[in-house]
Amino acid sequence: MHELILMCFEFFKTGLFAIGGGLATLPFLFDMSEKYPHWINSAQLADIIAVSESTPGPIGINMATFTGFKVYGFWGAFLATFSLVFPSFVIIIIVAKFLNKYSDSEVIKSAFAGIRPAVVGLIAAAGYSVFKMAVLSGPVSSVYNILPNIEIASAFIFLTVLIAVHIKPAKKLHPIFFIALAAVGGIIFKL
């Protein structure tokens, strides 16, 4: 019970501070995995990201539901999603009441101008956590031992997908396509 309340609080915090959509919740999820490793670890988080990108619905909601399910089954899933949505629901209703003032407000615009570049850095940090876990073998204590720890087959999948999402015909493909291909790659290379 205590755990469940703690989890609700974590998702409430995520809902309140994650600005810029679903991916912006990622750094908060990784923060959770560090604070509460028995809830979820970073490898499981990567699986959750894959499932969330390959299923319908907003990615942020999918990730919260899955994480909550992992922590406390059905009620964990329900309460994680509820706690994630609750703060923005309240904020949106307040904003809707004072709508005209909000969207023209210089203060809001400039606060958001500061958030945008920071969010890119935050999501990149979450991406780096996935990278370390997926492409490197063993714990990486500093930047200097990244190179010798690279898993060749994983790095191959990583680079192939990274290049594919940037070149013309492939970049229109849905992420689910790359995820399926990587699953086949993982089985072939026995990762």
């Binding site: 990108e53 997926a134 699953a183 086949v184 026995k190």
Partner: peptide, 15 residues
Amino acid sequence: HALAGIRAAVAALIT
């Protein structure tokens, strides 16, 4: 094995 492959793709998608 499949999940290990998928994680590398997820790292690439986020990047």
